Simulated assay, not measured.
Amino acid sequence: MKYRLALAAATVGFASMPASAEPVVAQAMAKPVGDRVIAALSRRLFPLFDTIGGDPAALDRVKAKPGVATMLAARAGRRTACAEDVTCIAQALVWTPSETSILAEATPQGISTADDGAAAQARREIEGINVILRTFGLSQVPRYPQIDGPGPIDPLETRARLQAADWLSRTPRAQSVQALDPSMDFALALLDVSDRTDAIGFDPLSGGLNAAAMKRARSLDWKRWRYSAMIVTGVGPETPDTALSPFGKYHVRLAADRFARGDIALIIVTGGRAHPRATRFTEAEQMRAALIERYGVPADAIVIEPYARHTTTNLRNATRFLATLGAPLDRDTLIVCNPGQSEAIASAAFVQRNLTELGYAPGQIGRRVSPTEVEFRPSPLSLRVDPRDPLDP
């Protein structure tokens, strides 16, 4: 608790430190240090601006584009006017629509692999910065308040996190875009000090629990199978000590029974660490363990997708995993889940939910084969990275 009581004093001391206090020789020779956690989070959430940060020439080209220097100067002036008010600073770092347009249009072409181009990806990443600033710094209620955002926290803790994020965003970090604008590093730091680095919790997905299945996938002849994969969706528990929800156990039984027919190449169990808030259990991991231990499904027939927090992203992330595995996206998969969720996935309302939350359909919902089975044809649109959901971009 002492750090909270001393926070104001520490702020003043940091701001008033004389320049002579820094070793002149060390300052001249030192290079910015790299932070492995923040670097991984940056690559995951902001792949376009992370690439620019690692290329000084690209950074200079962005800054030289018409209108950029004036816009960045106005943003810097807005921050300076806040003095040491960290809430004001967080608000000042939020990108306005006009600022977003200027920077997005200044992004070099060919620097992003997004299917809709660099400018569209830049807009998503800038909007992602805004979501993090507002949700984790300015107490805006997220779309799913029961599982997203920082949760209820003490106002002093909120201020401490904002102050730490401000300091961290001003402290040089290797390969960052701090020289352009500090907002991205402020947002990354906010997630870090809030202990919400969920988006990189299982990287790299090709190793660990997925290593055996990844090795097997390289030798698969996908044309041999009726379905390239079975997508087993999650239904998170609502009590903190429950590893696998009642519906989750049902999904596992359904998956084992369906896989035993032998016409599906592999199983993708998908579900993150979402229910209840800050649970220590990851749903995909628990479903995999149950399939192996209770039903004897071979480990090399199962991959975990441990990030999805919603049914929309169950399908989006499963599609991404299929691409990683080298599976053709022009072949059907089979979604297996309880009748209520299956009916919802097959509904017009779910189509609209995807458009509202993702901006596109992660694939084509096909026929409902049975009350617990729906065919699904994945879409390459799912490969777009979208940090507007910073816990699972």
Rank of each mutant, 00 (worst) to 15 (best):
Q27T: 11
A19H: 03
S382F: 09
P145Y: 11
L244W: 06
A90E: 12
D203N: 14
M214H: 04
G236W: 01
D203T: 04
N314D: 11
D392H: 03
S139V: 09
I264T: 13
W222F: 10
E375P: 13
K249F: 10
R277N: 00
A8T: 10
D263C: 04
M214G: 01
A211H: 14
A104L: 11
I89G: 03
I268N: 09
V351T: 09
A57F: 03
G53K: 05
I292R: 12
R170F: 01
D392Q: 04
D60L: 13
V68K: 13
T282K: 07
L205E: 15
R161P: 10
Q352D: 10
I132K: 04
E105C: 12
A83Q: 01
A58T: 04
R273P: 01
S169M: 00
I335T: 05
L244P: 12
H251G: 10
H310T: 10
V269F: 14
R224Q: 14
A6R: 13
V374D: 02
A265W: 02
L93P: 00
P298R: 01
P240L: 05
R309T: 03
I52P: 14
E127H: 15
A26F: 02
R78V: 00
R161F: 14
L59W: 11
P108T: 00
T70G: 08
D263I: 05
A284E: 00
R79F: 00
P108E: 00
A308G: 07
E375C: 15
T324L: 15
T372S: 14
V62S: 07
R388H: 04
V94I: 15
L190D: 00
A28C: 08
A346K: 00
R388D: 08
I264R: 06
G359K: 02
S219Y: 01
S139Y: 09
R36S: 11
A58E: 08
T311F: 08
N210I: 03
P32S: 08
E238M: 06
Y227I: 12
R124L: 09
T279D: 03
G53A: 09
F321K: 06
M71N: 04
N317D: 14
E157T: 15
V269C: 14
T270I: 07
V12T: 10
R75Y: 07
T87L: 08
F202A: 11
T107D: 14
T313V: 05
P328R: 04
E375M: 15
I102A: 07
A348L: 02
M287S: 06
K65D: 11
P152K: 10
P97L: 03
V68S: 13
P298E: 01
R316D: 06
T87H: 15
M184W: 02
N130R: 08
